[in-house]
Nucleic acid binder design. Sequence first.
DNA 1: AATTCTGGCAACCGCCTTCCT
DNA 2: GAGGAAGGCGGTTGCCAGAAT
Length: 297
Amino acid sequence: MSTTMPTGTQRVCNPNEEEFELRRGPWTLEEDSLLIHYIACHGEGRWNLLAKCAGLKRTGKSCRLRWLNYLKPDIKRGNLTLQEQLLILELQSKWGNRWSKIAQHLPGRTDNEIKNYWRTRVQKQARQLKIESNSKRFLEAIRCIWMPRLLEKLEQTSSPSPHSSSTASTMESQNSKVTSLVPNQDNFASQESKLMDSENSISNICSTDSMRISEHPTSPGHAFGNTACNNSFLNDCYYVDISTYDMEGFNLAPMSAVGTQDISLLDCQMAENNWINDDMSSTLWGMDELWQFGKPE
DNA sequence: AATTCTGGCAACCGCCTTCCT
DNA sequence: GAGGAAGGCGGTTGCCAGAAT
C-alpha cells in the first residue's frame, strides 16, 4: 500500500505506525553520512532495522544496495583494468550472468558495476555485429579475438594503465603475473589480415601455430585449452597463470560444442561488417586503443 | 547556441532463496 | 513443516553528462 510521490518519495501507510515518507531516488550526502556513520558504529546487516535506527527514510534494500555498491570503503573507482575486463569475459563465459559470483573474483568491484559493463560495452558489440549476445558465435569471438587482444594489450601495457593508477591496486598486483602471453606483434597483424579474408575463417586463425610461444606445462584447468579453435590459437599461444586470477581455472567446455560451421558464420558476419577495421576499432568496449596496435598499416 | 542522441551508471523492481519463529 | 521476513541476485529503468548534429 504505497503511493509514489512526485518528489521521489513514497507515502507508506502502515496501520500500526504513523504515516511516514519513504524516500526514493538518488541519495543525498546527508543520507550517505547517516548510513556510513551508523554502519561504522553498529556494523552492517539487518537492513530494515538499520534503516529505521539510522533515521533513514529508505527501505532496507535500498540501504544495503547503497552501501554495497557505493559507500563501502573498499569499493574501487575508475575504469576497469585490462586484467579485470579479461577476467570478466572469461568468467562470464564460464558462469553466465552470475554477476555476484563474478564480482567475488574482482576485489573492489561490484556485481552492479560488472553487470553494467557487460550490458553497455560487451552486449553493444554483439548488437553491432548482429550477433545474439551470449550466443556461441559471440562467445567464440570473445575467445578467439577479443580475449587474445586483451592479453596482448596487457602485455604491452605492463606498466600500470593511466586511468587505473591508484584505484586498481589489488587486481593490478594480482594479475601482474600474466606472463608470456603474447607473441610478436607482426604475427598478430598478419592474423588480423587473415581475418579479413573471407577465404579464411576464424578457425584458420585459431589453428595457426605461427603465434606459438609457450604452453603452460602444469596448468590444471588449462586456461585456453580444448576450444573450438582446436586448441591452437589460445592454448598454444597464451599462458595465463590461472592461480593468480583466482578463477578456479578457465572452463571452456561450452565452447567445445561450437562447430566450425558456427565459426564460419561468424567469420562471414565479420567480413560483412568489416568489423575489425571499421566498427570494432572505434567502439569495442570503449577500449579504442585496444584495436589500434594490431591493425594492418 | 540550441536541440537531439547516446553512453554510463546509480537505483529500483521483482523473483528466488535462506533464515527464523 | 509452514509461513513470514530478510537478504541476495539479475534484469530493467531513468537520469545526467557529454557528444553529435
